Simulated assay, not measured.
Amino acid sequence: MKDLHLPLNQTQRVRCEKALHELQVLTPTTVLAAAVTIADTIPVNHEDSILRGHWTSDQKGKLVSTLCGVVEWVDKLVHVRTLQARYSVEICDILVGRVIKVGPESWRLEINSKQDAVMRFSSTNFPDGIQRRRTAVDELNVRSIFEENDVVYAEVCAFQHDGSPELQPMGQKNGKLERGQLLTVSPYLVKRQNQHCYHLEQYGVYLILGRNGFIWVGEHAVVGETAKLMGTELENFTPLETRNHVCRLANAVHVLSALGFTLTAELIVETAEASLSSKVAVNDMVGGEFFVQTAEREKGAARRVHLVRKEIGSI
């Protein structure tokens, strides 16, 4: 709560603190222990066969933190999680990046990591979709595919000799994302999942959860023959209802990330639906009361899961 800068009154602050505290108690998979700095000793019982995880070190029989962060436990594995860190790239990660430089044979993208990523011209398709050999003229027209500030949906396929990640575009239109919002959250809130791109048909919206903490919420683009029949005027127009859906889902991401919840498509949609059922306006979702309601709702869901598991364990 001390990191949340929200316009909460005293009653709302007490409710939110209570809900977040009970969430930590009821969550069995990861138990929050304490905040530590570099060289702090982490209290453990070595007779319990503790497993040493990331950012911990064994110094003269004591488990010591090598990073400023929070101690977390997963069963017998203890590790330290930093609260503010750049994204650490891994092969096959699904990312959302922004083009910051256009070269003759590649594009350089900002991906919220220590190094920028590279996407080669040879890994993209031509805008017309025709398969043919690339020529020097094509290389001069790379801006017809991507230019500065374009947002791209891609996958990490390799690392170059200097350690910078190389990306492979995904999806249609070479992974180019348009008509939406690019949000930035802490990368640790987006876990590796079986699926990172979701078409939310009830909203007509695409939701992409980038492992690097870049999240895209935008209109579902119509491609192919249907787009040709619609005409250019309709293609460039986003309905007001769809814009409201994009803003509502984006605000749901903002609320959940501020509360420190792990982001999933299901949780984001549930939060947006809760705001609709409570008749909360889009701009009021970032107000203090909806933050408190979201924390209390997640506390109730965690309690139900905890009781179900307790009942199953007693059978």
Rank of each mutant, 00 (worst) to 15 (best):
H220V: 11
G260L: 10
S257E: 03
E225L: 09
V223M: 15
M230S: 13
S257A: 08
V217T: 08
Q293V: 13
T264M: 05
V286S: 11
G260I: 07
G218N: 02
E266A: 13
Q293K: 15
N251Y: 04
V246R: 09
L267F: 05
N251E: 09
A272S: 14
V282E: 02
E296I: 09
N236M: 07
R248K: 07
F290G: 05
S257R: 00
A295Y: 04
V280A: 06
A227F: 02
N283P: 06
A252V: 08
N251D: 09
T271C: 12
T226F: 13
V255I: 04
A265W: 00
G288R: 03
E270G: 05
T262W: 05
P239S: 15
E233I: 09
R243H: 11
G287Y: 11
F237L: 06
F291E: 06
L263I: 08
G224H: 10
T232D: 15
H254T: 14
A272F: 02
Q293H: 12
V223Q: 14
G231Y: 05
A252M: 09
F261K: 08
F237I: 08
E225S: 10
Q293R: 14
F291M: 08
K299V: 04
N236L: 10
F290T: 04
E266Y: 12
G231E: 03
A258W: 05
A250C: 09
F290E: 07
L267H: 04
G260V: 09
E289Q: 15
L240Y: 08
G287L: 13
A272T: 11
D284M: 11
E289N: 14
V217H: 01
N251M: 07
F291N: 00
E219M: 05
L229K: 14
E225R: 08
L249D: 00
A250I: 01
F237P: 00
T238S: 07
A274C: 07
L276C: 12
E233C: 10
T262E: 14
A272Q: 03
E298Q: 15
E298D: 14
G218A: 01
A252F: 04
V246S: 11
D284G: 10
A274D: 05
A258P: 09
A295D: 10
V269L: 07
S278D: 15
T271F: 01
V282R: 03
A258F: 06
T232Q: 14
N251V: 07
T242D: 10
S275Q: 01
M285L: 04
H254P: 07
F237D: 04
P239E: 10
G231W: 04
C247Q: 13
V292A: 10
F261E: 12
G224A: 14
E273R: 06
G224P: 11
K228R: 13
I268Q: 03
G231H: 03
A274I: 02
L240C: 09
V222F: 10
R297T: 11
H245R: 03
C247F: 10
H220W: 08
E225G: 07
L249H: 00
V292M: 11
T238D: 06
V280G: 05
T264D: 06
A252N: 01
L234S: 13
V217C: 11
A252Q: 05
L263V: 06
T238K: 03
Q293S: 15
E235K: 06
L263S: 04
T264V: 03
A272G: 11
